[in-house]
Design a protein around this nucleic acid. Sequence first.
DNA 1: TGAAATGTTGGGGCG
DNA 2: ACGCCCCAACATTTC
Length: 518
Amino acid sequence: MGDGRDGCDRRDECDGPDERDGDRAMALWWVRDDLRLADNPALLSAARTGTVVALHIDEEVAGARTPGAASRWWLHHSLTALAEDIRQYGVPLVLAAGDPCVVVPEVVQEVEASHVVWNRRYHRPHRDVDAALMSRLREDGVAVESFAAFLLHEPWTVTKDDGSGYKVYSAFARACRSRPEPREPHPRPRELRGPVQAGEASAGDPGAAVAGYPGTSVAGDPGTTVEGDLSATVAGRHLSTWFDADGFADALGERGWLPTAPDWAGGLRQTWTPGEAAARARLEELGDVLDGYDQRRDRPDQSGTSLLSPRLRFGELSPHEVWHRNVEFASEAMSSGDAEAFRGELLWREFAWHRRAVLPQLDSENIRPEFDDFAWDDDPQALRAWQRGRTGVPLVDAGMRELWETGYMHNRVRMVTASFLVKNLLQDWRKGEQWFWDTLVDADEGANPFNWQWVAGSGDDAAPYFRIFNPHRQAERFDPLGVYVDRWVPREEQEREPIVDVAQSRREALAEYRRVKN
DNA sequence: TGAAATGTTGGGGCG
DNA sequence: ACGCCCCAACATTTC
């Protein structure tokens, strides 16, 4: 674990597919936060190796949180989209649950996989699981490889001269920019083969695919035959389940990731289409977004942000693809400030993960220990009012309602609402972090706790404790006509009395911050 | 990726 | 014409 690389080779740069016709190797692609076909080095490697089976695990990992409710909603639909995409090739997406160190070897045995691949992740509990699993599989004689795909710069590749990591964003960003340009994105696999041939599996009649097995030549593609043992039971189900859209949907539904009573996901459905195709469609609009981005990204009353955060969170797009698309637009007569500002946002995401990789307690412990003394107010009513957008402060309420309704909140409003919870309501930042974790579709183990500690002032290179947003002033500056607030809060409600005196509570927060500092 | 408090300056009203 | 005061506008300091 010391070097943080799962002990594997670096194979970020994949050459073209191996021409190994007749190679019947079976590769298991463990799908995590990389729900895409494009620029997916693990999938590309699996496709070059031979026949591919995909696996997604509802994981129980000590020290790592399960995704929040909004993220589960997203994951449900994005997995559905992915399963559909790979079913075209006869590649099944197997769903399993439990400890990966138990589940993966089981699935390997069931599908007789000779290779296992995945793209690396960076939260320490996850890295420990991946490292343990890798050794275990290798002991069993299984070939295992992991790849870099989630970040432009893996945390341990950006270091100061003494080999340690960065704690200050500006220095980190400078170091990133002085490194070699991130690699170009890989194409989708040119060939992708599953145990069942394309056409058969997606024909809507799983029985036909199963009946054709084994050893049946598939018309139109005489070079390949159906292979694998469909009588096997994978993750408690007959293998044919995973080739069948309905069978897959049933199994996914059993995870219980969609809300039932009440169904709070209506706004999410209206706002988002999870899946790689929709992600790519949005990426195509990046040129429009970048025009004036430097100024407009701060304006919640304008659609000036990229909306790519959940795409990156779930890996529907790779950061490499986003980065290079940005560069492409930047070279097209775009004011360089706009493209540069957007790059800065991508690097901020990298920085959050750079810190997270060495701070497994980032979501639970103050990075600056003096904050352990802070006398947070424990007021469930105030917390509730904040969560539901009933604080009586229009911009705060607008943001919290946007979040509840859509699973998203404009970035500037995130800063304002977070500052308000911590520095006006004096509630512990962890309560806000937990709420965002549960309600944001882009909640990320790196960015979410990192940004909360940044706002609270308890992180390194955080906003200084005295930097307190005045929500009225922020509304004046960034939503001058009240367009954003009007969208989320009815006019008459905007006249309500705030639950807290903004000026007074600010002074109290400053006094408390001053006390713990000394 | 702040905002309030405090300090400075300069124009204009006025005696 | 001059000094004084007020205060807006801007700059600096402080939290």
